[in-house]
Amino acid sequence: MQELTLASPGGAVLSLDAVLILLSALACLGSKLFDRYLTYYALQSVLLAVAAATAAYLEGDPALWVLAGLTLVLKGWAIPAAARHWLVQRLDLKRDSGITTGLSLTLVLGTALCAFAYLAVSPERLAHGLLAASVVPISTAVVLLGALAMVVRRHMVAQLIGWLIMENGVFLGAITLTASFPLIVEVGIFFDLLAGFLIMLAMTTGLAERISPLPIGRSGRDS
């Protein structure tokens, strides 16, 4: 995996997939409806599952196939479906009014973060044409974009989705870089559990608040 080059077909698929994952993060950052957030997150997770499956195919490792399947079912279907049912529909969330910056400005900031990720990782120091040199800056950018989503959005559910995007970014980097796959499986399942936990948390908070979900970041000022 570490010595996989861009020129190989597998490398080309993985790098294209990584760019699509980046784009879905930007799409999520550029939308205003809770329903869209979840759609783009589900799309990103499916793309991540494709990346994991490609890695599994290249390595011939059954553990990675399991990981790809888990990603597809848990993140691509279960988490978005549960969030849609328990959070978006039950709390009747439609338009996110808790965005602190305009969409265009957010997207510009997002692009700047992508460029920053490239500069920070400086992949040109790695051997030329190596797959890791292309995917690591992209996964770093996805992590930063998820962080940006958590920074500019005040609504708890929107922040949760930002967190999930960050996690996808970490996962993308891990698939491309790490050689010890059982570790990734563990880490992946751990993160999924944590994501489930956070969703439960958001759900209970939402149920308690019912009409007005908790606006994080304002609580100090309002009380």
Partner: peptide
């Protein structure tokens, strides 16, 4: 429409950034 065209700008810009990253 500004957001739509901003999206086109963004896609092209990301395209150029990835040309440095992916080669």
């Amino acid at each position: 429409i500004a957001e739509y065209l901003g999206g086109a700008f963004l896609l092209a810009l990301i395209g150029i950034i990835t040309s440095y990253v992916v080669g």
